[in-house]
Write a protein that binds this DNA or RNA. Structure first.
Lengths: 349, 349
DNA sequence: TATCGTTTGGAAAACGTTTACATCCCCTCC
DNA sequence: GGAGGGGATGTAAACGTTTTCCAAACGATA
């Protein structure tokens, strides 16, 4: 038989035992300076002895707050969810835990029902605030949350909205600028890029970074070398096949994400070429697999966990009334140099 | 300026507008059959028009339930959290969402403070029930939850406890039995295994499966061929180096997880050997990277998402009073045949 | 028409807090 | 010695539900 859990000792019980009113007990916990040192001690002692802990349900009703923050994560039915969510959760969980807030996680399948999840959380009054991840160029979730006047922070950016909102994003443009410079520094001049679908709002940034580094170096960007992938391994594979079949194939390939870079590896292997030798490859994300490929993948790392923590900071500030404009940051991703990018060799036709 | 959120229309407001008592309004939502069709309609119509939704805070206080289920996920500071958690969350989220329950996620860093998180959730009355993942042979979290008499389900098994509890686990023994038979079927006889640290309770199962398949086939298991890894890529690499340096090296290697299998790949490449040709390799987990290795990794898949859903089913049953004994299942992992295991070649010394 | 079950709906008591307001007491200062 | 002030505590009203009683109304039966 289980030990009965501390039978609901409520504030009344403590008050009676300590011979004070319930108001005093409450004050001991909420505004200790407002109660005399002696009684405070007595109350605390009694509370300790009885194992009293204020019932959060009562507190929440009274305060009209849920003490919870919501996060909706996309878990498409077929394939596995993006690992980045987990790292984000790790950071959010840490930060929120310290602040005494709970993290409420909801899963959604398709793009379409995503907004419905936000509605449920907001209109069902299940959370005090929200975290939005995976933003799009035009994002109706952000519009919705703005219209509802509920505190939220955004991981990623978005197109113009009628009001500012707090966000933290990675500077894909700067990242790809740096990555391209890295390749240029190694001696490459024939550099291709496999980009992302243009409705995702990071697609443009990443492409711009590549372009401006090329322009800065006075190098030509052939239309043939600017491909558009679908962020999947297979998509990267197909694009790489086409690139390698060109009369003048590139000596290096930048990929908008690591998964496509893996696809490029695949295509190279099929032709007996080695990444980092005949063709250099650079990815974006630094997914777990990136360090186990052969050779390990040179890529751009996004510190999701730190971002999660920072986002919590933003959220707390926001809930305290800090204006959204003061809570907007863009971080530069770190180039992680591994073996998949090296000096160009004359290995290709 | 944001549209003001539907100014708290409470049950009183609806009652007044519909010219009934609040009790009737409440009944309309909770026991509709107990209220006359005509009034019910009127109330519903008014509620709809006013956009009334019962305030969960009030409901929860009244019912004494939080309508939330807790999950603690391990996010060790250095490395990234295990992707399996995310898949589990996906399954749990789906199931709980359908049941109208919220999923509360907490993150912990070390083994040591894990129990503290459970205490906070339980004693702080933040959840009605819990999900425990990553069980150990002796698991104090389970002991604690049993002592607290709170509903919970377990992903994985544990050593004997003073009371039964609901769990869902994968049969590592059967899995490795099947994997070993697969290798035997391909013609291998010199099969090694890189196991897991013995305090993890799946280590024994997996080892047993390997052993019994070997015994069944009347094959010798050399002590040299039974290695103990630490579940990391580097650990797999080191063990593989030692195996390959043996006077009589194995023609196939079973690994207790995929990460170690990647380490074996690494060691093979260094010696110019190819997985699936000179040496066959089998992993366990089917991590995302497994399908992108060269060759893709043959491994055992655990359907975490489905398990999450099933666990929710268990939890709901448990909360309804079903005895724990009736809620225990063990599933067999699926062998995913890819290219890393093939017929033995005479390629080694 | 009196009686009796059966719906139907209302009044009110929880659930456990926090906090505005009132009260009391003691001290100080004119 | 009374007014005034400030500190410590108590009283009671929320917060928004659900649910247990009851009472009223109603139809049916004797």
């Amino acid at each position: 038989m289980p030990l009965s859990r501390p039978t609901n000792i409520d504030i009344r019980r403590v008050a009676a035992e300590a011979e004070v009113s319930i108001a005093t007990v409450s004050r001991v916990f909420n505004q200790p300076e407002r109660v005399n040192g002696k009684t405070r001690h007595r109350v605390l002692e009694v509370a300790e002895r009885l194992g009293y802990r204020p019932n959060p349900l009562g507190q929440r009703l009274r305060k009209g707050r849920t003490e919870a923050v919501g996060l909706v994560i996309a878990t498409p039915p077929g394939r596995s969810a993006d690992a980045f969510f987990l790292e984000l959760v790790a950071g959010l969980g840490d930060g929120l835990g310290e602040a005494g807030l709970d993290l409420l996680v909801t899963t959604c399948h398709s793009h379409a029902d995503e907004l419905a999840h936000y509605r449920r959380l907001v209109e069902g009054q299940r959370v005090d605030a929200l975290v939005v991840a995976r933003t799009r160029q035009r994002d109706d979730r952000i519009d919705y949350l703005l219209s509802q006047d509920i505190p939220f922070v955004v991981h990623g950016r978005s197109g113009p909205t009628r009001e500012p909102f707090p966000f933290l994003d990675m500077d894909g443009e700067q990242g790809f600028f740096n990555a391209t410079r890295h390749l240029l520094g190694l001696g490459h001049t024939r550099i291709a890029m496999i980009g992302a679908p243009p409705d995702l709002n990071f697609a443009r940034h990443r492409l711009n970074g590549y372009r401006s580094a090329m322009r800065e170096a006075g190098l030509e960007v052939r239309p043939d070398w600017m491909r558009q992938g679908d962020l999947s391994e297979d998509g990267g594979y197909r694009q790489a096949q086409e690139l390698l079949a060109l009369p003048e194939p590139p000596s290096a390939v930048l990929c908008a994400n690591d998964l496509m870079a893996l696809g490029v590896f695949h295509a190279l292997r099929e032709r007996g070429l080695r990444a980092g030798h005949e063709v250099s490859v650079v990815g974006y994300d630094d997914i777990a697999a990136a360090q186990y490929t052969d050779p390990p993948l040179t890529t751009l790392r996004q510190p999701f966990r730190e971002m999660g923590r920072r986002l919590v900071g933003f959220l707390l500030e926001r809930m305290n009334g800090t204006p959204a404009q003061a809570l907007q940051e863009v971080w530069t991703p770190e180039l992680v140099v591994r073996g998949s990018a090296g000096p160009p060799k004359g290995g290709l036709a």
